[in-house]
């Protein structure tokens, strides 16, 4: 197990190196010279040269890449072309918002997805099953941003029961702490602020989780059906073990393996979907920030965000794979992935 873990971690190195290379190629090699974009076409040649020198863009490209890697390893992604603030500072100020939203969404999607999936597998071809199938179809077909806007129209515009934008009322905003408002307000015992933060989270979570919820429901259902049809489950049933027990102790446990994988993979689509959700709900995370930075050709920021998100995603999948190995002792640790 330890050997397997170490091996998996070592395998991350080429992947992360590759991601850095891809990001670097897109931003520094394929993209046009940022100097005129930042300074304006009418800027003098000298001014542009000076700017390029200041940002290390006149060095040989290989050196630039090595510098980029070296700096990235220490969490230094340079300074934003526009605000002249360290990119890392700008990102860290917004990262907790995205993390909080993504965690809430994946928890919501996993818990309800598995629940719905199990229920519809056990009660196959009943109203519950059909309802969950339809829900799953809507979930994978409806664009997140459309769903988000419809939620706003319903809950904020018509019923006036949920706030439409932002993370918390400004006067209740926690200062310091982790930046995860639910956690911060809970640990400081500020329940009014906790409630307000939770209310702000409901719609973004719903919108972001819907797609993953659908995928997880469908996956759980089909995986449960597979295991329920296995011989040993039939045997267990015929032996008179209560069907509740069968589902809980035998079928679900075995079905969990593919489900865990799907949940891990869903994190990727969640991080991508956060860009849209954050834009619709004016959620101050790195997703909406990235969209703003593209317009400005603020390459260092876009570069850093893509790299960080890819790293997070790869790490999460590593953790999922480890849990997976944990759950299923039959996995051969030497197995080559891919």
């Amino acid at each position: 197990m330890i050997k397997y873990t170490i091996k998996r971690i070592l395998l991350l190195i080429p992947v992360l190196f590759g991601v850095s290379l891809v990001v670097f190629l897109i931003m520094r090699v394929f993209s046009p010279d940022p100097a005129p974009v930042v300074l304006g076409e009418h800027a003098s040649r000298e001014a542009m040269q000076a700017w390029r020198n200041a940002h290390g863009l006149n060095d040989p490209i290989v050196w630039q890449f090595i510098d980029f890697l070296k700096n990235a390893l220490t969490g230094n992604f340079g300074t934003s072309y526009y605000t002249n603030q360290p990119v890392m500072k700008e990102i860290m100020a917004r990262f907790p918002a995205t993390v909080e939203l993504a965690i809430c969404a994946i928890l919501f999607a996993s818990v309800f997805g598995v629940l719905l999936g199990v229920v519809s597998a056990v009660r196959k071809n009943t109203a519950v099953d059909y309802a969950s199938t339809i829900l799953a179809l809507i979930g994978v077909s409806m664009p997140i941003f459309w769903l988000g806007i419809l939620l706003i129209i319903l809950f904020s515009g018509t019923l006036h029961i949920l706030p439409s934008t932002g993370r918390i009322q400004p006067m209740l905003q926690p200062v310091g702490g982790t930046g995860l408002y639910l956690w911060d307000t809970l640990t400081s015992g500020d329940f009014e602020a906790f409630g307000d933060a939770a209310r702000h989270l409901i719609m973004p979570t719903l919108a972001l989780a819907m797609y993953s919820l659908a995928i997880i429901t469908r996956m759980t259902r089909s995986s449960m059906l597979d295991t329920l049809n296995q011989d040993y489950i039939r045997t267990a049933r015929s032996k008179g073990i209560s069907s509740h027990r069968v589902v809980k102790h035998h079928a679900l446990r075995n079905a969990m393996i593919p489900i865990t994988t799907v949940i891990g993979l869903q994190f990727g689509s969640l991080l991508g979907g956060a860009v849209l959700t954050e834009t619709v709900f004016a959620w101050p995370g790195i997703g909406s920030y990235t969209v703003q930075c593209i317009q400005k050709s603020d390459f260092p920021v876009v570069q850093a965000v893509v790299l960080i998100i890819a790293t997070v995603y790869v790490l999460i999948n590593l953790i999922v794979d480890l849990i997976y190995a944990f759950l299923d002792p039959r996995i051969k640790y030497s197995k080559e992935e891919g």
Binding site: M171, P174, V175, G177, S188, F326
Partner: peptide
Amino acid sequence: NSIKKISSFLLAAAIAVSAMSGCGTSKRAS
């Protein structure tokens, strides 16, 4: 047993996250 293992793992992760960010108490802006 393995379910227990997972939950303790998740709990440990949660504690690690909170410890890393040196959190604990926070105040309202107001």
